[in-house]
Design a protein around this nucleic acid. Sequence first.
DNA 1: AGCAAGGATGAAAGCGCTCTCAAAATCTAG
DNA 2: CTAGATTTTGAGAGCGCTTTCATCCTTGCT
Lengths: 344, 344
Amino acid sequence: MSKGAPKLSDVARMAGVSPATASRALSTPAQVRPETRAKVDDAARLLGYVPHGAARALASQRSRTIGAVIPTLDNAIFANSVNALQRSLAESGYTLLLGSHGYDPAVELEVTRALIERGVDGIVFVGTDHDPQLYRMLATFRIPYVLTWSLDPSGHHPCIGFNNREAAMQVTRFLLDLGHRNFAVISGLTAHNDRARDRVAGVRDALRARGLDLTPQAVIERPYSFASGQEGMRELLKRALRPSAVVCINDVLAVGAIIECRAEGLDIPRDVSITGFDDMEIAAQLAPGLTTMRLPTVDLGRSAAAYLLDRLAGREVAPSTELPVQLVVRGSTAPPRSRSAGRK
Amino acid sequence: MSKGAPKLSDVARMAGVSPATASRALSTPAQVRPETRAKVDDAARLLGYVPHGAARALASQRSRTIGAVIPTLDNAIFANSVNALQRSLAESGYTLLLGSHGYDPAVELEVTRALIERGVDGIVFVGTDHDPQLYRMLATFRIPYVLTWSLDPSGHHPCIGFNNREAAMQVTRFLLDLGHRNFAVISGLTAHNDRARDRVAGVRDALRARGLDLTPQAVIERPYSFASGQEGMRELLKRALRPSAVVCINDVLAVGAIIECRAEGLDIPRDVSITGFDDMEIAAQLAPGLTTMRLPTVDLGRSAAAYLLDRLAGREVAPSTELPVQLVVRGSTAPPRSRSAGRK
DNA sequence: AGCAAGGATGAAAGCGCTCTCAAAATCTAG
DNA sequence: CTAGATTTTGAGAGCGCTTTCATCCTTGCT
């Protein structure tokens, strides 16, 4: 007889119990006699009862909702881990609220405010570069959060991610060991992007450790896109001294670089070695395959979900988790052509 | 002095007005004297007030939240339009709740239920293939929704999308006009995926219109991935009668197909013409460029947002919007090599 | 100056649920 | 069989905000 969506009191009435008991039967079944529980469940099913989330959130002070604040979904790699995050959350009855900011700290702050307003129980961020005001807001509202993709050097913030600097050093050392001495880097925009900065720094440090310099001109910075990778490579190829090894800060850029080399008739890896970061699907399919650092992005999403869920459940959590990365060597790298033989 | 997050009553007290007025000053500024409004605004700013979304939703019966139910974010093309959707919504003060189902109708139903429980004011779905129970749920809870990517032939549901069948026919006709007579199709899984089905049907219809048949063996069905495109192409190349034109149902598959051809030393487009669907960024960067149907995915996201927002605001909305698609001809297509010259 | 009309404000009743607290029902054991 | 312990249930008070309705100020006119 009731108009509109059935409410808890409708279920209770139909089951012949009080709203309080109906609530318990639905939310904490263990606290209710099986017999009563069955009556309530039946009534709920019969009426097609769906709890009113806002009312529930207001009364219980938790929304069963988690926010994710990411730079953009355009990057397949973020999309990938957000996908994993959402699925993990859904398995535990949580829903994902999404906010993207396009690498703009002001927008990020605003988006975060919006999520807090929606009453998210926790938030997943990308990277460590954030407006101090953002951290203040998080503290004021006591929102559990976790930074992902990077590790926080200060140790002030919980995080789950990779050691981007070390990973980049590893790639660089691999190239150095192959005999390369002439490096260039194609990077994403480093402003508000600690991942990119750390990776570039890693290359620089690894080179310095072997007495080599990475000059500012050797680093090309461009927005993430295939076209940027191509442009970057084109610029490098115009130079008098062409690099023999090009470290790209992610796979999108690297694939762009490969495409450009191919268009210019260069032989990869003989004329130039190229490396990426991420290990997107296409990296393996290309010919030659792209040598790249594999980042466990699905794990990342899952771990972030697990962290927050554990924290909300009052379980013990590690303040910081480093996820392992792995260098995947494929056909895009080889010793440089004109290697000065025997020079130790 | 107050502990925890400041609430509306705190703002009201500080501004020296009643909670009712504070509420109006914040939500419907026009209804309040500028002078009073300023006092409230100042107090709110000073206290760092953030409205409590659940309370607001409970009292006002709207959550300023929109849900999106998509197959997966792994597909860059969905990620793309979800990104646009989210941004459009954010501009209007709405937040996006995300649910993905991996092409499983049961999961989709469950995810939708979760979104309704969260009190979304509207939902964006992908495609027209949905459990009847889903539509029933939508009706019961009177949730505005819109189907995207496809057009609903029955006209029962509001939708914003493309005429996938017609678009596929257009691609096919283009290939036919080039002189191709020997076709194959590489498709995504068609179960619960009307887009894929419509496109395959479009190819079949266009061929039939010219007296040609698309045999079941000529259609290869695989999950979406670069690897699938490669596998599909590999299988086609093994055949005695190799197709001269391969219509791929999306760009991911098409790129995979191109990669495989290249690996096999085939010349595209001389030995085989390949077409895609979507016009992802990489389609243009590849050499040869991929001939493909460009779908305005960003527009799609924006239009879906606009539709729902208009509807919620009580504005007039078109029950169905067809977005224009465009055939982008690049280097992956050409007349077949062994064209029977002059045969009309 | 006096009064109607309209605009701004305040009081208070919920929105639908959870959860504390107390009462009732059930169980345990002497 | 009954006192006491324990489990199950119900009553009712909010959670923080919006929104009707009534009240109080302003204005504009006569």
